[in-house]
Design a protein around this nucleic acid. Structure first.
Length: 425
RNA sequence: GGAAAGGUGGCAGAGUGGUUGAAUGCGGUAGUCUCGAAAACUAUUGGCCGUGUAACGCGGCUCGGGGGUUCGAAUCCCCCCCUUUCCGCCA
């Protein structure tokens, strides 16, 4: 959510930002409603002030034995007027909020302007020693190898639940678990994050707080009976831990990391990168969340990306970092880096992580503030999050980059103490 | 699922219709004292919205959420949500 005052004072800037995000601007309607709202507020508050003033005198009048029936009659009128105006005000505010909920966050000034994913900018690439993007040897893709080694079963997953619900079995399951444990441990021990194991079902307020709602409602699994949503990312429960809180400045920055399964309906995305792990309804993800002061939040973003990169360097998986352009930036993000890992079988880069700074956009919705130690003033925090990392796409890269010519799979060195074995097959 | 109790300011905890944004205690902040600290004492201390000034300010809202009764609601009534305890069920 953008600050209404900010919109009021920077209408052109907001319009431009919204346009750069390929969204339609409702700024003019917002401004008109805002004006109407403030006029109504002024009117009702005058009446309320009058009412309060009179009410304060009633006890004395009664004590003095004066007749109050005339005053009561007048005040009854005033109350009716107030409730009429309040009704109008509520209508206007509902319309206003309905529009505000759909205005995206503005791209940061450092974000390249662009229309689509084609305009994203490669910030840097990293390759393990001796690695080449050109394969001399053909590799089995993750589906073939997973089947051959008996560690992945998409067919049975489809039987149990439907397509896009993978089953890991045997050493595949162990490898997945090792990956999760390794990533958590690195972030906890080397990067200073606190581990969180949050609920997987969250309420509507939480979904609104991190801005999955209203825009992405169709992409969420929803338990109608309890009006609970199954999380699409641990970002939701972890960021919302501090919803409606005023934190102390000395407690910032907060750095959390948590593993959860993630669930996405992926409505409307069938047919595109949909095979195997490339797009699933359920996947595992280790997520980093930061709640920080506004100053330096973009430095925190760089740190977040570095923390995710460390995993890939340790795993020796080739990757590249993209700075998303304005047109590819998600609704709530101010700036975002995608990390893509190399898939030799697909012969392309696969998104394995997304690291974003939301500045105060989520904090405003979720009402996450902090009190300055310097002047005791309260202001909104900045929130960030990034995958560190999603295992499914990572598993594709591991299966493809670590397979031997005989079709075995070497377990990446850093995972071996977690798996207890060095090779599969 | 059944029964009961309860949701008040950063926390604890008063308050059952009228100057109550709310006693009291703790905490926080500032000051006095001190070489310094502690203790003690004094003062101060919520958030949101609107409006406005040179600055201070002024007004409204806010006692889980929503509705109602009333001239007036933290206090009375209705609905919803949540928490705790006991019972049942159960990993």
């Amino acid at each position: 959510m953008l600050d209404l005052k900010f919109i009021r004072e920077n209408a052109d800037l907001v319009k431009q930002g919204v346009e750069n995000k390929n969204e339609k601007s409702t700024v003019d309607q917002v401004l008109a409603l805002d004006l109407e709202r403030r006029e109504l507020i002024t009117k009702t508050e005058e009446l309320k002030a009058k009412k309060n003033q009179v009410s304060a005198q009633i006890p004395q009048l009664k004590k003095a034995g004066q007749d109050t029936s005339e005053i009561f009659e007048q005040m009854r009128q005033v109350s009716v007027e107030i409730s009429e105006l309040d009704g109008k005000l509520r209508e206007v505010e509902e319309k206003l909020n309905a529009l505000l909920d759909w205005i995206p966050n503005l791209p940061h000034e450092s974000v390249p302007v662009g229309k689509s994913a084609n305009d994203n900018v490669v910030a840097r690439e990293w390759f393990p020693e001796g690695f080449s993007l050109k394969n001399e040897e053909p590799v089995l893709d993750h589906l073939e190898l997973g089947k051959k080694l008996g560690i992945l079963d998409f067919e049975r997953g489809a039987k149990i639940s439907g397509s896009g619900f993978p089953v890991y079995l045997g050493k595949g399951a162990t490898l997945e678990r090792a990956l999760i444990s390794y990533m958590l441990d690195l972030h906890i021990n080397d990067h200073g994050y606190t581990e969180i194991m949050p609920p997987i079902l969250v309420n509507r307020d939480s979904m609104y707080g991190t801005a999955q709602l209203p825009k992405l409602e169709e992409d969420m699994y929803h338990c109608e009976k309890d009006d609970l949503f199954i999380i699409p990312t641990a970002e939701v429960p972890i960021t919302n831990m501090h919803r409606d809180e005023i934190l102390n400045e000395k407690d910032l920055p907060i750095r959390y990391v948590g593993y959860t399964p993630c669930f996405r309906r992926e409505a409307g995305s069938y047919g595109k990168d949909s095979k195997g792990f490339l797009r699933t309804h359920q996947f595992n993800k280790v997520e980093m969340v930061k709640i920080v002061k506004p100053e330096g939040s973009f430095d925190e973003l760089e740190g977040l990306v570095n923390d995710a990169e460390d995993i890939l360097k340790a795993l020796k998986i080739p990757y590249r970092i993209l700075t998303l352009c304005t047109g590819d930036l998600s609704f709530a993000a101010s700036k975002c880096y995608d990390i893509e890992t190399w898939s030799p079988a697909e012969d392309k880069w696969l998104e394995a992580s997304s690291c974003s700074n939301f500045v105060d956009f989520q904090a405003r919705r979720a009402n996450i503030k902090y009190r300055s130690t310097e002047n005791n003033k309260v202001q909104f925090c900045h929130t960030l999050n990034g995958s560190g990392l999603a295992t499914s796409r990572l598993m594709v890269s591991i299966l493809e980059n670590y397979q031997t010519p005989e079709g075995k799979l070497i377990v990446p060195k850093v995972l071996q103490k977690y798996t207890g074995f060095e090779v599969i097959g």
